[in-house]
Write a protein that binds this DNA or RNA. Sequence first.
DNA 1: GTATTCTTCGACCGTGCGGTCTAATAACAG
DNA 2: CTGTTATTAGACCGCACGGTCGAAGAATAC
Lengths: 183, 183
Amino acid sequence: MECAIEVIAEEGFAQASLARVAQRAGVAKSVVLYHFANKDELVEQVLTAVSMASIEGVPARIAAASTARDKLRVMIESLLGFVAEHRTYALAALETWNMTRSLPGRLRLVAEREKGADDIRDFFAEGQRVGEFGEFDPRVMAVMFRQAIDAAGLEIALDPDADLRAFAAELVTLFDRATRRQS
Amino acid sequence: MECAIEVIAEEGFAQASLARVAQRAGVAKSVVLYHFANKDELVEQVLTAVSMASIEGVPARIAAASTARDKLRVMIESLLGFVAEHRTYALAALETWNMTRSLPGRLRLVAEREKGADDIRDFFAEGQRVGEFGEFDPRVMAVMFRQAIDAAGLEIALDPDADLRAFAAELVTLFDRATRRQS
DNA sequence: GTATTCTTCGACCGTGCGGTCTAATAACAG
DNA sequence: CTGTTATTAGACCGCACGGTCGAAGAATAC
């Protein structure tokens, strides 16, 4: 699995054939299929593992923040911190998700991701309810939040030396302004 | 080519084989290769055609706007208007771009897209220079602008009946706030 | 030590891919 | 009508893919 993630991240999802993954792991192709039943299962477990890893410890840090604005900052910094520290994982997640969207029969994964989006939307809605955020469609803001996280993955995909700390800081101020009250 | 765009948009880039495109066009596979040399050329021309179509008339409308904030609004509304009116084209562009990024040897196309990103970055920088925009990294803002446009494509990919007009309105206010002066 | 289970390997299979080639046909120029 | 060119169809090729299978080797249980 580790090897699968590496291949996807470094060579792209399209190049991540079972043979290529097996070669990287130093085993025969059939060994991969012995442990994973079929390729879809491999991909699904990769996606699950990566997304689990990406949000590890984030809920705790969010709970430690008192205000909604602070939680928002923590979320951005945590997620981009993960991308920066686990570039391979982040790239694999980006690649896999992009491909998964178009390939057929992956509705379960899409549904899961949408559920995560709902959580973020609810967070913005709650921030509005308590009066911290101004008026905006929380769903649209949630979509843009996710796009911002994905953008971090794109950054390191195009430039491995990208300064994600500065990028995160920019995103924090951007969303801070975008969620302000008053017109 | 029209058929290629349709297949990519409706069935996904991965399913858009030469045979599938030819079948859709009602011709033999070899006919496609007679007109396009190879698949890469087809993809490249599709991407070119779609991106040309997406910005058709946009420069004129931008020039008609006087302030930078107005130009920003016009850009968002124009691009999302295109997505709404030519969903097939927009979906094909999204699909193709996503795949192209990972596939090898497509550096030319990536470079072209990056040039377009530079233009948007310069637009934001100019807006800052004349004092209309506040302080932020124009490159990051340009990245998020592009992500916002892509988000529109994702919207119609997940829900064909998505209300892009409302989505555009939300984006306009979002970016309007994000580019405001003062902290 | 033997029987059983777990794991690995490499050969193999069917399929669909991008791409080539040949022959037949349609369009057209003189 | 004739020669030429543009266009089409379909058979074909080599390749890489996901996946299967049977035999051989490790581990483990008793």
